[in-house]
Amino acid sequence: MLSSDTMRGYNDTIILSLLLEWPSYGYEIAKRIKERSNNKYVMKETTLYSAFTRLEKQDYIRSFQQDKTMGRRRTYYEITAKGREYFDQKHQEWLLTQEVVNQFITDNRS
């Protein structure tokens, strides 16, 4: 299980990547994060929610209300054009980060 400290910088990008696929709501996103990480990362409820708030404030996502099963009113989120741009930027940044960090943290101890 990954610590939330390590993952802090990536939460927003992970959520955006999932919203790139289809508009979604809280529980569904949390579930997909857990499944795709093979149960290695569980995003806390409050972490998820504060990420939504932050992303919405920056116009990267948009929220709307929708009634679904059992008449429960859910807040759905969809990614905006600005959000897609931001995601691409973050994607490039991640490739670079990976490359750099890999130079230092490696298996071969000499």
Binding site: Y25, G26, Y27, E28, A30, K31, E45, T46, L48, Y49, R72, R73, R74, T75
Partner: peptide
């Protein structure tokens, strides 16, 4: 109140699942 409502729905979803 909206935050509480959203969190409650999420938690309900998770609980039922």
């Amino acid at each position: 109140e909206q935050v509480r409502q959203d969190l409650l729905v999420n938690m309900q979803d998770k609980y039922e699942a």
